[in-house]
Amino acid sequence: MYAINPDRLDLVEEFKARPFGEHSPDLQYVLNLMRTKITNAFPLLIMTRPYEQWTLAWKSVGDLEPARRTNTTFDSIEAAEWHVFKLRWRELTGSDCPVD
């Protein structure tokens, strides 16, 4: 319960192929865990160039300080979601995401 099976390569590929829209129940379970098991900071995006560039930022739960911008930028929101998916996979399974 409340754990991600690191052997489910199929779910990783499903998310990479379609980060938005209908997901299988097992993938939705993984995403729900990734988006609720937040111990410190959670990710958000700052649109640093209108509709051209999104910068990854982190915000601590419950604080009202500005989000902490990183140097990681993306040219699409889909790419940003995939990057965060891999970060959270590593955080919650203890191993690197099997798909790059």
Partner: peptide, 17 residues
């Protein structure tokens, strides 16, 4: 922008400018 729940129920990261 202050809750991780936004990512959950939006199904995508929140975007600020």
């Amino acid at each position: 922008f202050t809750s991780p729940m936004t990512h959950l129920y939006h199904g995508r990261m929140t975007v600020m400018d």
